[in-house]
Design a protein around this nucleic acid. Structure first.
Lengths: 364, 364
DNA sequence: TTGTAGGCGTTATCAT
DNA sequence: ATGATAACGCCTACAA
């Protein structure tokens, strides 16, 4: 009950607590309230019945006055509204949702909430959801398709639709599709609306940037095998490399994390590539760290390109050449598509190259 | 309807779309289904009535069999369960929540979802919530108390309780308190359970670290004026500086962002401090960038200390001396407190100093 | 324009 | 052990 000082607990230890699933939330203001005092402190939430009674109308009239004005006389509407305000009436959203089946909540699942790139997606989506009167529920699948599926499963009963930056396979998505409306980020699937970065054009920009610097052998450091974006990016790079007579080596897949950068860098150094393109900035920055550790000059000995221009890309060493992924706009657009404000099935957003200092003329 | 290529839209332009709030979610599988076909494709979700009818028992029995086994014969339980599985029955969580008022959802509001520090808090909280069978709803208040209040307002009807990393004033929190159970991160308030970093001890560590390097004049770069953590950290630093005969200058408040680092660095350089302590790492890294830009050697001319050891603290230049804030453990503990698994009102977690290269001997 | 009544899917309370 | 029934709070035909 009193002040407690805890030593650092590791996750495993913490989770040891039994999986007891029935732990009632601590109750607030338990019992013992003034029963029917003067006027100020109602312990039970005021319902539409209270409003109707107080206003001297039927519940249906009260309901209409509040949620369907226009089907009720102006006088009644004003009166009911006044009473509702005075009583502090707040509609029970759960009860509202029961008959209609709509909660005005939207689910957004991202593979890694710690990736700043996704933070931008979230910001955009949340802003647009709020503007449309929806509440956004965010979940983190930690790059695990199973966890993503679990989240979707748990959220589905509550939300009106999903925005997914998904690692689940096509079949899984199709299965979900006829439970709830779904829109996809950086993934296409027949019948499902999506917003994708223009991987083809950004691939072109990267390859042209590198060739203009004289590079002729390039390595691509793959992201997760479950990532559609990775497959698409890879294909685009391959096509443009072929067109420009550039030799492309595929390495990986690697987890899209800082830590994986070490292995990725080592793999790249084992090839004769003079430039590497990483799946995303997290991986690219990890590569940078490893290269410095191994004494490899960037861009002197090796040029490095990232993928999404996240927080950190400007202050890592050297600042990272990357692609300005419009995640925030993607978030807004996805939500708009979900609620029908934008009627399109495949939106493609440009991701312009941002040349910083991690790429330079081929030297070797 | 077809493939669309969009130019980059700025946020303002995007938001220009009218604030029309009534945009129905695109319907899926609308109407016209086989009415009572053979066996496989039910369009309407199967209810407990369907299960009961199919199993030849009363709905109450079916309900008990599924959610209250033990109050029903083993034979019945098995049978009902089998039928439910066969029919693909999934309880309607909304309907479950209506009588009980409990949704098994928890709200978590953070001031800045793009701050990696909060990502760790979210991870911890989500893990523990999932383990207890709860779903975590995450929202981003973008350092705006009003937006936080709005989120809480919108979430309150749906969630069983809140974890708040709050910027709202005490009165606001007290008001919320008797609507839903609340636990606080890095903030204390009478009557409200909380988990806080040990600001006093971490302040001591920082001050002792700096004095051991010979520093006698230090500046503290404040965070948001609405941050309890900032006030507490500041007070702790002041106390320990006094004890060690160190002169402390307070600067700010500053927004806890990379961008604000420039102004903060300039302010610090205008003093005679040989070391600066920043509210958090975001600000500290921004300071580092500015100092480099202005040609000030770190730690040669100025030592810099951060606050929470975020992503980026290891690869900024130079790597940042900071405090290892146990945000993930805090997240787990907060959720445990919310659902009563931990019975404490004030938990204090240590944040050990991590000495990297941004601090060094006083030179000037 | 307004009132009456039924239903949304569950769980809990009472009988049986 | 099981069955009937009444809530939960709101919405919406339908009737007046």
């Amino acid at each position: 009950m009193a002040r407690i000082r805890l030593p650092s607990l590791d996750s495993a230890r913490h989770m040891m607590a039994t999986g007891c699933r029935e732990l009632p939330i601590a109750c607030h203001t338990p019992g013992m309230d003034h029963s029917d005092g003067a006027g100020s402190g109602p312990s039970r939430p005021v319902t539409i019945y209270d409003v109707a009674r107080e206003a001297g109308v039927a519940t249906s009239t009260a309901s209409r006055a509040l949620s369907n004005p226009g089907r009720v006389s102006e006088r009644t509407r004003a009166h009911v509204e006044e009473v509702a305000r005075r009583l502090g009436y707040r509609p029970n959203r759960i009860a509202q949702a029961l008959p209609s089946g709509r909660t005005r909540m939207l689910g957004l699942v991202v593979p890694d909430i710690a990736n700043p790139h996704n933070a931008r997606l979230i910001r955009g989506a949340e802003a647009q959801a709020a503007a449309a009167g929806y509440t956004l529920v965010i979940a983190d699948s930690q790059e695990q398709p199973e966890l993503e599926a679990a989240h979707v499963e748990r959220l589905a009963p509550f939300v009106d639709g999903f925005v997914l930056s998904s690692r689940v396979d096509d079949a899984g998505l199709h299965g979900l599709r006829d439970r709830r409306p779904v829109v996809l980020f950086n993934r296409t699937l027949p019948e499902l609306p999506s917003v994708c970065v223009d991987f083809d054009d950004s691939g072109r920009q990267v390859v042209e940037h590198l060739t203009s610097l004289g590079h002729r052998t390039v390595a691509y450091l793959r992201g997760p095998a479950t990532s559609w974006a990775d497959a698409t990016r890879r294909a685009a790079l391959a096509a443009h490399c072929r067109r420009h007579g550039v030799a492309l080596t595929l390495l990986g897949p690697f987890p899209p994390t800082l830590e994986a950068g070490a292995a990725a860098a080592d793999a790249a150094l084992a090839t004769d590539a003079t430039a590497v393109i990483a799946f995303n900035d997290l991986l690219a920055i990890g590569v940078l760290q490893r290269l410095e550790h191994r004494g490899v000059a960037v861009p002197g000995a090796l040029s490095v390109v990232g993928g999404d221009d996240i927080f950190g890309a400007t202050f890592c060493r050297p600042p990272l050449t990357t692609l300005a992924s419009p995640a925030d706009q993607a978030g807004r657009t996805l939500v708009d598509m979900l609620n029908g404000r934008i009627d399109a099935t495949e939106v493609v957003l440009p991701a312009p190259l941002v040349a910083r200092d991690s790429t330079g003329p081929r030297r070797s």
